[in-house]
């Protein structure tokens, strides 16, 4: 290009170059290259576990319960998890939200048919329990339908959640042994209470 306006090509080229670079960056997701935004805890999500049995059930319950509790408290499941990862006292509202969240999770799992029957968990529970071996052998010999009619998983879980001292449990969630001991004791008590209620109803 020649002539007195030849220089005008430079600003035009500069504008084209800047538009091209910024345009290509934006078209490829520039500007939205940000950390993952946690999901809305009030929107239902599917949770899965890589393990079966009591451990898998506990994991799914905790994940669903955290969502429910987060929704009640107006925070994300992640924010609540990070908050509970720190040792310390918990507010009453937090304790109540977690308890209600776990119970809602039980109801949801029961409603969508993902809650296993008690007979599917009994062998694993007996392995972990310190029972008289004749009693243990007797329970193992019971047919699944007898166990399932005597013990309802949702009832046991709801009782266990009520039984749990969540304030103490959440005060130091890093103590794995103490956590397991407390949950085990709560589940054991819940099974006894559930069976006693069942017997009372039968009589």
């Amino acid at each position: 290009m020649n002539g007195p306006w030849r220089w005008a090509g430079l600003p035009v080229l500069a504008v084209l170059l800047v538009c091209a670079v910024v345009g290509v960056q934006l078209a490829n997701g520039g500007g939205s290259y940000e950390p993952l935004r946690p999901a809305d805890p009030c929107v239902e999500r599917q949770v899965t576990s890589q393990v079966d049995g009591i451990e898998g059930l506990t994991e799914r319950l905790v994940l669903l319960g955290l969502d429910e509790a987060g929704c009640t408290l107006g925070v994300t499941r992640e924010e609540l998890t990070l908050r509970f990862a720190q040792s310390g006292d918990r507010a009453d509202a937090e304790i109540d939200a977690v308890r209600d969240g776990l119970k809602s999770a039980v109801t949801r799992m029961k409603d969508d048919g993902t809650l296993p029957p008690a007979s599917a968990l009994v062998d694993e529970a007996l392995d972990a329990a310190d029972l008289n071996r004749f009693l243990e052998a007797g329970i193992r010999a019971l047919p699944d339908r007898v166990i399932d009619s005597a013990l309802k998983t949702d009832d046991v879980l709801t009782r266990a959640i009520d039984e749990l001292d969540l304030r103490e449990l959440l005060a130091d969630p890093t103590d794995q042994a103490d956590l397991e001991q407390q949950i085990g004791a709560a589940v054991e008590q819940a099974v006894k209470d559930s069976l006693a209620d069942r017997l009372r109803n039968l009589i």
Partner: peptide
């Protein structure tokens, strides 16, 4: 203008 445009580009990398 080019420096400003380049800095905007550096502010918004897609990865």
């Amino acid at each position: 203008f080019l420096v400003a445009g380049g800095l905007v580009g550096l502010a918004i990398p897609p990865s």
